[in-house]
Write a protein that binds this DNA or RNA. Structure first.
Length: 588
RNA sequence: GCCUCCAUAGCUCAGUGGAUAGAGCAACGGUUUUCUAAACCGUUGGCCGAAGGUUCGAGUCCUUCUGGGGGUACCA
């Protein structure tokens, strides 16, 4: 429809004013005014030599004469508001109302994209920050799939490095052979406990050193337990048997724990990468870079790249002791990823604190000519903060993912029971209901916010189930399904020339824009576009529901139309919620 | 210091250079013999951080300033 209008305006400008070769832009008409699309004529008044009103009026007249699809127009100052004829909306409804995959586009057809998300460290459990990452990564993948892209979801497990050694060391020193079975703790929780323990042990040692007259900074470098961890990393890279054994055992615990959390969050992956498998490839690449003089070696043996010519600093690629760092691993991973899948685009869902890292990574890949540097895209999302301040995982001050999900579940359960809507449902159905509603509240609360922005997570607000929330949208869906159940026959809608009431038309126009939202969400990689869109749909449907009778409508044609609209709204909500990883329930 | 992102209602957030800046929450009031009240309708609440500039038109673009977040050579 937009294209048609643009053609009309373009023809009008040419015939009336001899204006050609200009990019015509139209926008949605603001609610306060009558019309569907608006064309702003201000920029053209200089050429038309007429006032804005006259220019717009002449153009409006021209369009009305040349198209049956525009039923009327009005002019406010320099704004030409065009009203689309009802038959267009009716035809759209007729075409789409039973389309269960309504909204799908072929926008990204033939393009293959890899989306890396989650990417946890194996030394501690998943927390609120990971939750945002997981939800974003999964949702963006699904949005791109919905747009026809071939998407490979990837999880890069950071299973090696000094941080892992810290957990291992603390476990060896203080664990007394504790296991998930013996402790009853989820595997990731158990390992996380020892990561916190390490930091406490180290803190004590640092305090002691400081007491003996050494500076804080120096003490933090010299703490014996830190030295031990560093030695352990060396042993690990050398393949020391005992170290490897403990490492493998503890990682298995963590994976089992993560798996449970992923399952509950609804995240899945097509492929897993392990940094323990990719860092050697990275090291090799560093050697190649050295021989090509892209990198250089300092006297202490550490390897660097000088990026001052690119406006950046110097960056470390290998430590003086020869062990690899984050960057080394990421070079190797990028190479392996490209070898495996040959995606033209590789998206990294990683927090914005690492923007610098990815800028450097991209440059290095470019210079080394490996791993498809041009396709690298860092989807940089904002940090999650609590009303009380920032999350601090080193001190164990976080919002734990599992606990958070459980709270949402309980909240949904409490609210459902309070409303007394549990009648006739069996235990398993109830569980499913609470789970679906609780997770919807959590997911929607996080995804409705623009990913690039930092967000404040208020636990009390997040468990709200009213207003602009996931459950509100689910409720609208359940309400529609209830109406459709009440009819319980095939909807038999045929295009009629009947007049659309305002709430009907508003809803239809909004539903028509789903594809546009789907496309935009994929372009800007933002589930928030979908979330905000579907919230408007739910609001609009509820308004329509209050204003217009459906089952009680006596005019059969109108009744069928409203049923068809309900059907289309239900399909739209279901598909949109799916893109956010949110399920629907038939009643709630 | 340098780089970068951000600043919109009491709170959390929307706002492709266009019209009178919008939602939700919170506060107050109303709607159910009628298709699900987790809903709907209304009231209160704004120098869009400040000052300049570009433009017919700026919350949106540019400059400066203020305040905050993040990054910045051996954590990841």
């Amino acid at each position: 429809m937009e294209e048609k209008i643009i053609e009309l305006i373009s023809a009008g400008l040419k015939d009336l004013y001899q204006i050609t070769d200009v990019a015509i832009k139209i926008e949605d008409t603001k609610k306060e005014f009558e019309g569907d699309y608006t064309f702003v004529v201000f920029p053209y008044t200089r050429i038309t030599k007429l006032g804005p009103e006259q220019t717009a009026d002449a153009l409006g007249k021209y369009i009305l004469e040349h198209s049956k699809d525009i039923s009327s127009y009005n002019v406010v100052k320099g704004f030409l508001n065009l009203v689309i004829a009802d038959h267009i909306w009716n035809a759209f409804l007729h075409e789409q109302f039973s389309n269960v995959s309504y909204g799908k586009t072929q926008f990204g057809k033939g393009k293959k994209v890899m989306v890396e998300y989650s990417s946890p460290n194996t030394n501690k459990p998943l927390h609120l920050g990971h939750v945002r990452n997981n939800l974003l990564g999964w949702s963006i993948s699904e949005i791109m799939k919905f747009n026809g892209y071939d998407v490979v979801k990837v999880n890069l497990i950071n299973d090696r490095g000094i941080h892992i050694c810290k957990s291992m060391l603390a476990w060896i020193k203080t664990g007394n052979g504790e296991t998930p079975d013996s402790s009853g703790l989820k595997g990731d929780k158990l390992v996380g406990k020892y990561y916190v323990a390490f930091n406490e042990l180290m803190k004590a040692e640092v305090a002691q050193l400081v007491a003996s007259g050494i500076s804080q900074e120096e003490a933090e470098k010299q703490a014996p337990i830190l030295k031990e961890a560093q030695e352990m990393l060396l042993k690990w890279e050398a393949g020391d048997e005992e170290t490897m054994h403990i490492w493998e055992m503890m990682n298995e615990w963590v994976y089992a724990g993560f798996e449970l959390t992923y399952k509950r969050l609804g995240c899945d992956f097509d492929r897993y990468y392990y940094e323990s498998n990719t860092y050697l490839l990275g090291k090799k690449a560093v050697d190649v870079g050295l021989s090509k003089n892209i990198f250089y070696k300092k006297d202490d043996g550490s390897v660097w790249i000088d990026l001052t010519a690119d406006g950046l600093d110097q960056k470390l690629l290998l430590r003086a002791d020869g062990t690899s760092v984050y960057m080394t691993q990421d070079i190797g991973t990028a190479m392996m990823k490209y070898d495996d899948e040959h995606c033209e685009k590789s998206v990294y869902v990683v927090g914005n604190e690492q923007e610098y890292h990815f800028k450097v990574l991209k440059l290095i890949l470019e210079k080394l000519e490996v791993g498809n540097a041009s396709g690298l895209y860092h989807l940089s999302y904002g940090m999650v903060e609590l009303p009380t301040g920032k999350l601090k995982s080193r001190e164990g001050k976080t919002v734990d993912a599992d606990e958070l999900i459980e709270e949402m579940y309980e909240s949904a359960k409490f609210k459902t029971n309070e409303l007394g809507k549990t009648e006739g449902l069996e235990e398993a159905e109830l569980h499913h209901l609470y789970e679906t509603i609780g997770l919807s509240a959590l997911k929607y609360f996080i995804l409705k916010i623009d990913p690039t922005r930092k967000m404040v997570f208020n636990p009390e607000e997040s468990i709200e189930l009213q207003g602009n929330t996931g459950p509100f949208i689910q409720y609208t869906y359940a309400r529609i399904k209830s109406v459709l159940r009440g009819y319980n026959q095939q909807i038999n809608y045929s295009v009629s020339e009947l007049f659309l009431l305002k709430p009907e038309k508003d809803l239809l126009v909004l539903l028509y824009k789903f594809e546009q939202a789907v496309k935009e969400a994929s372009l800007v990689m933002s589930p928030a576009v979908i979330a905000n869109y579907i919230y408007e749909v739910a609001q609009s449907y509820n308004h329509f529901y209050h204003e217009c009778s459906i089952l009680r409508e006596e005019n059969e044609q109108v009744k069928q139309r409203r049923l068809a609209m309900s059907q289309l709204a239900a399909n739209t909500i279901k598909n949109a919620l799916h893109l956010l990883g949110i399920g629907t329930v038939e009643r709630m």
